[in-house]
Design a protein around this nucleic acid. Sequence first.
DNA 1: GCCGTTTTCGGCCCGACTGTTTTCAGTCG
Length: 576
Amino acid sequence: MKNSDIATVFENIADLLDLKGDNKFKIRAYARAAQVIHHLPEEMELMHEEGKDFQDITGIGDAIAKKSMEMITTGKLKFYEDLKAEFPKGIINLLDIPGIGPKTAYRLATELNVGSVDQLEKAIKDGRVASLERMGEKTAANILHSIEVFRRKDRRIPLGEALPIVEEMLNSLRHIAGVQNLMPAGSLRRFKETVGDIDLMGTADDPESVIQAFVKLPQVREVLSQGPTKASVILPKGLQADLRMVEHEDFGSLLQHFTGSKEHNVALRTRSQKQGLSLSEYGITDIKTGKVEKFADEESFYRFLGLQYIPPEIREDMGEIALAEKNAIPRLIEIGDIKGDLHIHTVSSDGNDTLEDMARAAKALGYQYLAITDHSSGRNITADKKIERLTGQIAEIKRLNQSIPGIYLLNGVEVDIRADGSLDLPDEVLTELDIVVASVHSSFLQDRATMTNRIIGAIKNPHVDIIAHPTTRKIGEREPADVDLEAVFRAAAANGKALEINAMPDRLDLKDLHAYRARELGVMLAICTDSHATWHLNMMRFGVGVARRAWCQHKDILNTLPLKDMLEFLKRRPAG
DNA sequence: GCCGTTTTCGGCCCGACTGTTTTCAGTCG
């Protein structure tokens, strides 16, 4: 069983125990364990093989370790099967409806025999829900509305779509006189790959004027609510955005609170309680004296707790608080550390811009180098022309390297790893190039062993430098390939090959947790945009966001190397 | 069920909102 399956079982156990009215701290322990397992960088199956003790994981004790083991060895859990049998079938589905918690779900299932969302809708419409004790017309109507919202609920929006909209809005609002702070909080600020809704926070001399401008922005499709300090609106794609204007002296506490993650904040509060402090969005209260400390910025908030400042991207309760106590949070990679892009396309394959355009755009970003890595096959490249194309590219790069000073172009290719594991170009061609990026673009549905061997085969080819978008996923479009990433990571580390963090917002591949694990295993990572147009080069920051969420430093990322070291690195390739 | 700088028992995160109450339970973020 995969970690995600195990985590789901514990989540469901927490829900079922909640339905039962069991001890709430026991319930929290299961829910917490589910969270922890969901965020584990390594599969528990593998940890088991390696003889690691699950109880060393914070949040997992004797009971949950044993239950996890049972699931890994037998594929199921008797405790869970027995527990499920105590309830009407489908009761857990009711908990997906906003506004329905365990108490309500249990009553609906037992008193009205409701076991699905459809049945619930019927029960509301024929008046049975409103007739229950401590329920009424209003509650029933609210649940019905929640069902409607649930049914048409759009999936989470990719960060790459949400962030530009938000930035555009904030930039217009920043021009209003008296605005002091204005920024996103929530998962957007933490650079999660998708966002549910958008939290914006600000301070201003005249907060109401900012609210009024906010609801009139051209991006706003619908105003849900509007008050003197807070407004909620609907943006394109059904995205909800809340703007909250607060007192200047409270900004740090509120920003910290609304940035989350929830898990990070819970861990912070638990820790603070032991110091006699109570945390809330309004500040830090000394429990004995009742004195409330306020914070205008986050730095002073963390400092007051005796903690180093924690970057938003790693506020996930993955050990960052313990490190902050020791002042040991590393300096995470920043966009300014990136010295070049190692994966881009031009009109020679399926790109929109010429080699020269791409070179000048990269130079404008301050890069020292740019690798030209058009596809080995596909659009614009017939099988008999692919070697001829490369010969032409080599000549043009030689010319441009003389005519455009300040940026060094690398002769490269993105070579297909074919279904049978062979590369789309012969070794004697690859050896003529400065850099070779290899990737899968076909037969995405191969079984795990075949796909894993296919990728590891490419890693072992001495001419290959980087494996691009290792899982081939596209967010909301294509599931990741079934591949044993742990094996791929170990092979990459052993062979000194880099794996890509593809920075395009619809890919972000490797994703945060995978990159985290790869880094742990000593794999060199390369953040590349896979640009198909000049403006795509700006997507680098999304890849940097993933790398920061993976706790990557300067030294973990290949393309932080200055040109001289990069050329040195590439020299290890076998000469022709 | 988990955990330990008030350790092996006795604790366990905080505040707002809503609806249905007349002092609060349930749900959410």
